[in-house]
Nucleic acid binder design. Structure first.
Length: 930
RNA sequence: GGGCGAAUAGCUCAGUUGGUUAGAGCGCCUGCCUUACACGCAGGAAGUCGGGGGUUCGAGUCCCUCUUCGCCCACCA
């Protein structure tokens, strides 16, 4: 056991981790070894002996390129997956992409626009073929970019929302909901994007506060032009579609006018004054113009009063009437939009109409008015409320189980405050418009027979009418992209087929996402999970913050303040990016980067990875690669205090990391109140691991054992074994965060077989039983700290060897005596141990917590009065604190009401401080003479 | 308009049921190229925990209030 291997030269190990050449190679080794793939047969749900742990990746848009949001989101998922994989779970991370209806169609439309074409020039079939080709050529690039990040997805299960398999799932879902009466076609006002030429869901029409104007317009009473009723609107152009003026039934000002008619200016049609409690008598004039075809509320008023609903703004946002056309009692078509306005853009028309009203004296006044305007979430165009036929999903019944699951703790949302937002949304949920007037997406599986009028909803393509065998035509519209992604947790596993994957991995475990798609996606997945699988899709929703710049602006392409993760990886490597993100990611807190200073932004990660690498370099040089003894087999007596200390610190670090990561799943299907707030604190986990390897292993243990490693012999073997063990533990703890550098180092550790991979290694567990030495080493550390402080205080450069005297407190005698040499090495002092402080010497002093004292004789360089003053000051501060402490301990309320362990801790502290006070006071007395 | 969250060192943030002398990273100051690491080592400065009030033996932590930011939701035209 005393044989020593010759130190391995570090010539082949550069001072920095060579990420550029290593990362790709390591990633390929993982893939070759099949380290990413989960086995159905391992899952405890399929007879295996491992708990499944599944994450489905939020599918990026198929045409997207990697940005910081993806980098952040996927790093967090990878950390969780690697952690559970090492912890022994059958870990599955399902990757995939979303066909992203509007987004992708917009991209391709822009492409063909460069050729001077629109999608209508190309035609539907050709356009779809073109888009398929575009996706085949460029799509999925983002998944390859994720490899550079180190993402350990199971690529063999890569899914795509528009694949034949997932398309089957979409049809199945649509047909089932239709059969239950939860999918229906409705004729109502929806949000319409005049640029994308499609309807949008409520969520896709985002509110933006806008400084607009409120126009007050007077509508003269029919046959009584002297009298008029004034209405207010922010959108004068819609007045052409007015079919009534509503007043509150109890509003005395207008009671006599109810039932009479006014003449709509410009359009010149007569419209009635109607009573409706929708009107708020305190707002404006208390009279509201009703435009049922271009306002969702007015639509409801129109329905209540059975009013006509003329459309006066076309699909492209220009003025003009559309069918169904309104007719008068003689059956003639009513023309509301005058020739001069027809074809005009709605905003130009607004100006023109205002001018016309002004000219005719009908414009009463214009006020500035702040209000919220809805805009298309894809192209930012102001959305036009528009009457049309659309398909809807009835959401109330779907929302109920989704609400119950969060309320009763089957699902937790982290951080918890989002649960309120989730609950509120589901409580007030409205039906979901799922049809889109696009070409790119899942065609709605409904076929119409013009012959007999039959409507057929089918899982399979319908070629002829089942009733009359006549020709059928399929609904022209496609489904909202989110109608396919809401099925993602089970459609990716094979649903509607009852596949082995589905049985082994559904329900999944954690869903990681930004809060921006909580409604779009996360909540809808929960609803669909219950509806189609009868079970929640996951038990934890982890909502992280988003990446912002130093001005706290969201990183975005349009602002040009984004950071390309691939740039960061190219400059610093994937590990520094990952470490910086994880360490800087408070629970649900946004993370700030400076896009103009990547160096600074990612310094924490880069510095850390280099530090880790150099610890490894030291170890490989001084420990070598020949096998070491297992720490558990080493006699306890042979472990030094430092050895015991670092082993205890490792146990503590493991416990901290485990606590920060938390339970992987609720113990009993429901999250208990206690469990709910545990875990998922990835930054705490990163910090615990960092502190262990840097501030404990490198700063103290490594320095403490350098001498032992230098001298061949039994003790060297012990030190080698403990160092290798402690570093091995550190690498395992850190692997989920910085997988590449840890893998590279781990494989070089002593005694490692060629085919062993850290990615598949076991997560560490505490070894326990370290004994007293660990605590005793703390005393050594405090002596070292004290001497270092004296050096700093008196400006004694490290190059200068010092002699120092240690005067131990009674209990510390044996420890400080045997460790004197070590203390000397760590402080570059020649340390001698004395019974009592030598008299008559000019010296600098420090008193340790236990009353031990360290002294540096500095004859001639010390100002006695100054040193005396310093000590007196220190004594005064200590006495003040001690006084407060004793007062507290004397307080009966404190002793009786505070927790016993707190009182005990205070008593212990009181003993220590007293000892220190004694010592300090004695010192002051000898030095200052009073 | 309603709801939620935040305010702690120069900057970005931790601080779990109230309980040591409030912490980290980056930045800053001083001294060191000590044969693993200057992307480093050692030491140091820096916070009346946004203002005010309250509960308590004890408050960064709980309650009230004010101020300033941010987010989500919403049919006042």
């Amino acid at each position: 056991m005393s044989t020593t291997s010759p130190p391995t030269p570090t010539a082949d190990l550069p001072p920095q981790f060579d990420f550029a050449s290593m990362e790709r190679e390591i990633y390929e080794r993982w893939e070759r070894a099949g380290a990413f793939s989960a086995a159905v047969t391992d899952s405890s749900r399929s007879g295996g002996d491992r708990e499944p742990f599944t994450i489905v990746m939020p599918p990026p848009n198929v045409t997207a390129i990697l940005h910081m949001g993806h980098g952040l989101d996927n790093t967090l998922q990878d950390v969780l997956i690697r952690w559970r994989r090492m912890a022994g779970d059958d870990a599955l991370w399902v990757p995939g992409t979303d066909h992203a209806g509007i987004a992708t169609q917009n991209v391709v439309e822009k492409l063909i626009a460069k050729e001077g074409l629109t999608r209508y020039d190309v035609g539907r079939d050709a356009f779809v073929r073109r888009t398929v080709r575009f996706v085949e050529e460029t799509g999925g690039a983002i998944l390859n970019q994720l490899r550079a990040l180190g993402a350990s997805c199971d690529w063999s299960r890569t899914a795509y929302t528009l694949s034949p398999e997932l398309s089957r799932a979409v049809r199945e879902a649509f047909v089932r909901l239709y059969e239950k009466g939860l999918v229906y076609r409705g004729h109502r006002v929806i949000h319409w994007c005049p640029r994308c030429l499609t309807s949008l869901s409520d969520e896709e029409a985002e509110f933006h506060d806008t400084n607009g104007k409120l126009y007050h317009i007077s509508y003269p009473l029919s046959g009584d032009p002297e009298r008029a009723i004034v209405v207010a609107t922010t959108r004068p152009e819609t007045m052409l579609g007015d079919v009534a003026v509503a007043v509150h039934p109890d509003d005395d000002r207008y009671r006599d006018l109810i039932g009479r008619t006014v003449v709509l200016p410009i359009a010149n049609v007569e419209i009635p004054i109607i009573p409706d409690s929708y009107t708020d008598p305190t707002f404006g004039s208390g009279a509201v113009k009703i435009t049922p075809a271009h306002d969702a509320n007015d639509f409801e008023v129109g329905q209540r009063h059975d009013l006509p609903m003329p459309v006066v703004i076309t699909a492209t946002g220009t003025m003009g009437e559309e069918s169904p056309r309104e007719t008068n009692e003689r059956g003639e078509t009513i023309e509301r939009v005058p020739e001069s306005l027809r074809g005009l853009d709605r905003f130009e028309a607004r100006e023109k109409i205002v001018d016309m009203l002004k000219a005719s004296g009908r414009l009463v006044k214009v006020e500035p008015h702040q209000h919220a305007v809805r805009r298309c979430y894809r192209c930012d165009t102001v959305v036009e409320p528009r009457l049309s036929d659309q398909w809807f999903v009835k959401m109330k019944p779907l929302a109920e189980p989704a609400l119950a699951a969060v309320r009763d703790g089957r699902i937790r949302i982290v951080p918890e405050r989002w649960e309120g937002v989730y609950v509120h949304w589901l409580d007030t949920i409205r039906d979901w418009n799922i049809s889109r007037q696009l070409w790119w997406g899942h065609r709605i599986p409904v076929w119409y027979c013009d012959g007999c009028g039959r409507e057929t909803v089918s899982r399979d393509d319908v070629l002829t009418c089942p009733s009359c065998s006549g020709p059928v035509r399929q609904d022209e519209d496609v489904l909202d992209t989110w109608f396919s992604s809401w099925l993602w947790p089970f459609s990716t596993l094979g649903w509607p087929k009852d596949t082995p994957d589905l049985r082994a991995f559904y329900p999944t475990d954690v869903l990681v996402s930004g809060p921006d798609i909580l409604f779009f996606w996360v909540a809808r997945m929960i609803m669909s999970g219950f509806e189609f699988m009868g079970e929640a899709p996951y038990h934890t929703v982890y909502l992280h913050g988003i990446a912002r710049d130093t001005k706290h602006r969201k990183m975005s392409k349009s602002l040009g303040n984004g950071i390309d993760p691939l740039d960061v990886i190219a400059r610093f490597g994937a590990d520094p990016l990952r470490y910086t993100v994880v360490a800087g990611m408070g629970l649900g807190v946004d993370i700030i980067f400076d896009p103009d200073d990547l160096e600074k932004s990612f310094a924490p990660g880069r510095n850390f990875v280099t530090k880790l690498w150099n610890i490894g370099r030291f170890l490989l040089t001084n420990v070598g690669t020949s096998p070491v003894q297992a720490v558990s087999e080493i006699d306890r007596e042979r472990l030094s205090r430092a050895d015991q200390w670092i082993l205890a610190r490792l146990d503590a670090a493991i416990a901290e990391c485990d606590a920060a990561l938390g339970p992987a799943r609720p113990v009993n299907r429901h999250w208990t109140l206690g469990e709910r707030t545990m875990g998922m604190r990835l930054n705490d986990y990163a910090e615990a691991a960092r502190r262990f390897v840097w501030n404990e292993l490198a700063d103290w243990y490594l320095e403490a054992i350098k001498a032992r490693l230098a001298d061949a012999g039994d003790d060297r073997e012990v030190a080698r074994a403990v160092l290798a063990h402690a570093f091995d533990g550190a690498l395992r703890l850190l692997h989920p965060i910085v997988p590449f550098v840890t893998e590279a180092l781990w494989q070089r550790l002593p005694g490692r077989a060629d085919d062993e991979l850290l990615i598949s290694a076991r997560w560490p567990t505490a070894s326990g039983g370290q004994g007293r030495g660990a605590d005793e080493f703390e005393l050594v550390r405090s002596a070292v700290d004290a001497l270092r402080q004296l050096r700093g205080e008196y400006n004694i450069t490290p190059g200068k060897q010092l002699s120092a005297i240690v005067v131990p407190a009674p209990n510390a005698r044996s420890v400080l005596t045997t460790e004197a040499a070590l203390i000397g090495r760590l402080t570059r002092c020649t340390v001698s141990v004395a019974e009592a402080a030598p008299r008559g010497e000019t010296a600098a002093h420090q008193v340790l917590a236990d009353g031990s004292e360290v002294i540096v004789p500095l004859a001639g360089t010390i100002d006695v009065a100054k040193e005396c003053a310093r000590l007196q000051q220190e004594l005064a501060a200590l006495e003040k604190q001690l006084g407060g402490l004793r007062q507290r301990l004397a307080n009966e309320n404190f002793v009786s009401r505070a927790k016993p362990e707190i009182v005990d801790a205070e008593r212990q502290k009181e003993r220590e401080w007293s000892a220190r006070r004694e010592q300090l006071a004695a010192k002051v007395k000898t030095l200052c003479g009073n």
